[in-house]
């Protein structure tokens, strides 16, 4: 029960600058075990950058990031690898290894695991490809896949590591509505069956509201509001209101 009371991810006062631009400017968030947490914001708001910070792929200017109670700030790359094993990341543009087949992509993270026999690895590979609806694509190359298939392979590649937390960067952007629904169902199923925690970053408000327990609005480098989808729908906050209703008039300047 201890773990129930402690957030599995905590971000405190995170600031991050790239190219002289302060992309994140004091972001705070807490994600609870088993929660589906959404982050929404305009394109360029820093959503991907936030996930890259949480995964330890870049180092923030200041602030703190705790994963399962452990701060990742100042950890060496090797120590970070231990923390990263708790997290799986699905990249915005899939980032499949394009010199490898689908099967090799999915098995990549397992290749050094001594506790699994080759047959067990193959079984896991098939199992997770099946979960994302891609059974039988093992020997295809990434270049032969559609955008939606690539996305799903990248989900399988992360899931096969059986992480406690999944970070999804625009998991359904560019997918047709049916495929988007399949991915959304998968995310909630993983929570229901395995208690998996998810952070989903997207600009697709309606979809996120149907899936997430709580959503944060990222605007000008800050998480301006974090609340349930229902509360955000009813919010009077002008930025949230404009974003949620998709209105061209309001405080958001483009």
């Amino acid at each position: 029960m201890e773990s129930q009371r402690r957030p599995i991810i905590q971000v405190r006062n995170l600031t991050y600058t790239v190219g002289g631009e302060r992309v994140l400017d004091g972001v705070n968030l807490e994600v609870w075990p088993g929660e589906i947490f959404g982050v929404m914001g305009m394109s360029g708001a820093g959503k991907s950058t936030l996930l890259r910070n949480i995964m330890g792929l870049v180092r923030p200017d200041s602030g703190d990031i705790l994963v399962d109670g452990e701060s990742i700030i100042g950890l060496s790359e090797r120590e970070l690898n231990r923390v990263r094993a708790k997290m799986g990341m699905c990249f915005q543009y899939s980032a499949l290894f394009d010199s490898m087949t689908v099967r090799e992509n999915v098995l990549f993270g397992l290749r050094k695991r001594r506790d699994l026999s080759p047959a067990e690895k193959e079984r896991k590979c098939r199992q997770y490809l099946e979960i994302v609806g891609l059974a039988g694509t093992e020997e295809l190359m990434p270049a032969e896949l559609s955008g939606g298939m690539r996305k799903r392979v990248s989900v399988a590649r992360a899931l096969v590591m059986e992480p406690a937390i999944m970070l999804y960067d625009e998991p359904t952007a560019g997918l047709d509505p049916v495929m988007s629904a399949v991915i959304d169902r998968l995310i909630s199923r993983l929570r229901d069956e395995f208690g998996m925690t998810s952070i989903i970053v997207t600009h697709e408000v309606e979809e996120l509201f149907g899936l997430a327990d709580r959503v944060m609005m990222l605007y000008k480098g800050k998480g301006i509001v974090t609340d349930t989808p229902q509360a955000l729908r009813d919010s009077d906050e002008p930025v949230v209101r404009q974003f949620v209703t998709g209105s061209p008039v309001g405080p958001i300047r483009v």
Partner: peptide, 17 residues
């Protein structure tokens, strides 16, 4: 190309140096 397409980050995310 791997760097630009975030494959290097994907390696790191899969705990590979």
């Amino acid at each position: 190309t791997m760097k630009v397409t975030e494959q290097i980050d994907a390696l790191r995310a899969l705990a590979t140096n």
